[in-house]
Nucleic acid binder design. Structure first.
Lengths: 340, 340
DNA sequence: TTATATTGGGTAATCGATTGCATAAAAATA
DNA sequence: TATTTTTATGCAATCGATTACCCAATATAA
């Protein structure tokens, strides 16, 4: 096993010092054009590769960023991560992805673990409402930038990239109303998380604006799982006055709802319309395709990454807080297309 | 911003040397019980955290491992990664996930990039048959362990964890035969990748063993995408003698097949049976649930991680090559349940 | 009592790259 | 020609932790 070549090897070969070699490789302007070229060519020849660990130790930058998501096997998060990678890779960063599986201890554990790995920043989507803000203090103390995407929390000095959930929900609900639905239920998620609260608010506002009553018994909160969607929908259907539409803040619960409704012998969209949220691929691929709200995840990831880059490059001098809000898009499909 | 405490700070406070502190923290047996305790308590008090970058530089170990997958928004890969994490996290490792999106240049790019980040090992599922084995030479030269999972390639000295694809396909096909199907088509994928070749072989062997002819025009290779499944199935259905069953080596193409079949007004499973591969969650959640082959991805990930740990801990002394093969399980569901 | 072991811990080099400061040589200016 | 400025490079410390080697003090053996 031949040792890796270091700048010392290059220096020795060229009768220079490591310092000069280092500068030449970094295109330091204090180095003459000729030696710079010479060094760079020799480096190439000798198959030199920078030791990132040494660079990291000296500079205090690891060129790793942590990404914390509830799970990565949803198209939404996978796409956000893809967007982040697309933006960060060309800058020499690597991405360490951690899944929390919605467990609070994993959430705090992951953050500390990433911190311990000396990441240069953390991009995250909060999964658990119970996670204390205190967890982030470690981050702040170490001046490690934190950027929220999608599921954010309002913390002073922390930037975020989200979509306009209120508006997305508003449009979705309005669409249902325009289809003639009068009694629209809402399959909600943990509303101590902003996004779900906002979707709920948007839903409510749309009802109000169109003169429909807002029956709180038609709003039920649950986990974003297919089976949960089924369970709650069963409850809906057993009401004296069951809903004629369901607006779900998750595609997975929307899917469960559809299964349950069909099992009850009801027709979609004729008897009940269903709208989901996130535009997961399966909503498009189902035989009965599902209307959903697209969140442009790749762009969300890219922008989050850009905000991160701005913050690290600002070098702690400037404390900035950006709140970027993207506009969602309603994708109308069969599950809610009552009218021709 | 208070500086991080280092072992020097602790040393100074206790009137010791950094060496002693380091040893005490690492439970070196050359340190007396009393000072060891003293140091460890003081470290705790002073909020000491090891600088992983320094440790990495000195030891040459980054405690990062790279995981390269075609994509991570499939439940299969996400679950494998989860298994890997579960095994590696407790050992202090972090996981850097890279997606290749089936692009060759991304595949080689990712490997080099991970190498550059000085990962201690790479676990990967090959995505592109065109990727030259040459790419791995860099790995070998640096003695970075490489472990294949699922999609492997036969390379001397490289361990792998896979399932018995041949057997999985054999059982799936046998099941179709037992349901009375006589003309079974095979939606295949790139057979220059072992797993797909093996699935094809298992399919073929099952036909042979049960006295059915193997019509090569019923075997078509395509990408693992829903739309591709549709496209090929359309071809199948337009044949003079269309198949009465489709065994797909991917759940996604199986889904496409189902859509197309229904659109043609045919009934599943009465007219045509369909079986997929991977046991993606949606196969279970579809109204018409899809029979599929489970690959126990979490276990696959865990085992791959264990193999990696064995290899690094063996410290390059022993060169070992393990080939671990898990047994798949056929999950029979509606899409192929012709018989009561 | 003297010689030998053992225990506990210090010294200093090392991992590879970066960078503030110093300086010789070359160029520009007086 | 003498002096100042500029240019190109070297010197050495530094980032924080680890470890081979050395040595004093105590314990054990002869």
């Amino acid at each position: 096993m031949k040792k890796k070549t270091t700048i010392y090897d290059i220096a020795e070969k060229l009768n220079l010092t490591a310092a000069t070699v280092s500068r030449a490789l970094n295109n330091n302007e204090k180095i003459s054009e000729s030696t710079r070229k010479l060094v760079q060519e020799t480096a190439l020849e000798m198959n030199y590769e920078q030791n990132t660990l040494a660079r990291a130790l000296k500079s205090g930058k690891s060129y790793n960023v942590g990404v914390v998501v509830p799970r990565m096997d949803s198209n939404f998060f996978a796409s956000v991560i893809r967007g982040i990678e697309e933006e960060l890779y060309p800058q020499g960063y690597h991405v360490i992805v951690c899944q929390t599986h919605d467990q609070e201890n994993l959430e705090t554990g992951n953050i500390n673990s990433l911190l311990n790995a000396q990441v240069d920043g953390i991009l995250m989507s909060i999964s658990n409402a119970k996670t204390k803000n205190k967890v982030f203090n470690n981050l702040f103390a170490k001046h490690v930038p934190l950027i929220f995407f999608d599921r954010k929390r309002d913390i002073d000095g922390v930037s975020s990239v989200t979509i306009d959930d209120f508006n997305g929900a508003y449009e979705a609900t309005k669409h249902l109303i325009q289809q003639g639905c009068k009694r629209i239920a809402h399959l909600s998620n943990d509303r101590s998380l902003e996004i779900f609260k906002n979707r709920y608010m948007g839903y409510k506002q749309a009802l109000l604006d169109h003169g429909l009553e807002c029956d709180e018994s038609l709003v039920i909160e649950t986990a974003s799982k297919v089976d949960e969607g089924r369970r709650i929908t069963k409850q809906f259907l057993s009401m004296e006055r069951p809903p004629d539409a369901i607006f779900s803040s998750s595609d997975f619960t929307a899917l469960g709802a559809i299964q349950e409704i069909k099992e009850h012998g009801l027709k979609i969209p004729e008897d009940i319309c269903v709208v989901g949220f996130s535009n997961e691929p399966f909503t498009r691929f189902m035989e009965l395709s599902i209307t959903s709200v697209d969140q442009s995840p790749i762009e969300m990831g890219r922008i989050a990454a850009q905000v991160f880059l701005e913050e690290v490059n600002n070098g702690k001098k400037i404390k900035m807080q950006k709140q970027i809000v993207l506009t969602p898009e309603l994708m109308v499909r069969k599950s809610s297309s009552k009218l021709k």
